[in-house]
Design a binder for these strands. Structure first.
Length: 186
DNA sequence: GCGACGATTGGCT
DNA sequence: GCCAATCGTCGCC
């Protein structure tokens, strides 16, 4: 995973992740949608400084930050920027390519491949993300992150489901991918 | 100590 | 399109 400099600002790392292959225990696929977050911006979990929950985001870059969303879902971020900066990239959607049967079972027998990993909560469930992975290095097992196999066309727009800093266009996605959690306006 | 509110999803009208 | 599910975190009394 040294083909990406995770010590860079999250909004510069985010588009580089589009098209990358990502696996947890060899289950996963192509990253098609992400969002960047930064301590300087009020929609981020790190806006109010370090806490027990967001500690991993203030740790070394290139690690995972896992949090519970709405008391129900586990969501995965890649920590960015120098340690103590409090920034990261939320993985919002993946095009499934490996371990599809495994993902189907975890997702409750869902048949439509488009619905397996199209949303941060769905990615967490399909890849079996949990608190045991919070703070773990993306360079080691069970993670595997590989560069894009082909040139990537990406698009950016407003982030989803937030009420602050709504004008920041920090959601990034693969152009016209059918596996996005929702389409981009263009 | 208490209460409001999510970086969401799935089911129902 | 609307709303319940579900619970940890954080702000405020």
């Amino acid at each position: 995973m040294d083909f990406i400099d995770f010590a860079a600002p999250s909004h510069l790392v985010a588009p580089q992740l589009i098209g990358c292959q990502f696996f947890v225990n060899n289950v996963g696929g192509v990253i098609v949608e992400v969002e960047a977050y930064d301590q300087a911006e009020p929609a981020s979990h790190t806006f109010s400084g370090p806490s027990l929950r967001n500690a991993a985001m203030f740790g070394p870059p290139g690690c995972a930050y896992v949090y519970r969303s709405y008391g129900i879902h586990w969501c995965l971020n890649f920590v960015c920027s120098p340690a103590d900066h409090g920034a990261g990239v939320l993985i919002r959607a993946i095009e499934p390519t490996a371990g599809i049967e495994n993902m189907r079972e975890r997702r409750g027998g869902i048949i439509n491949e488009r619905l397996l990993c199209s949303g941060p909560g769905r990615v967490g469930q399909a890849l079996a993300i949990g608190p045991h992975l919070n703070g773990a290095s993306l360079a080691a097992s069970p993670f595997k992150l590989l560069p894009p196999q082909a040139p990537v066309r990406w698009i950016q727009g407003p982030r989803v489901g937030i009420s602050k800093a709504v004008d920041l266009p920090w959601r990034f996605g693969a152009l016209d991918s059918p596996f996005l959690s929702r389409p981009f306006r263009h």
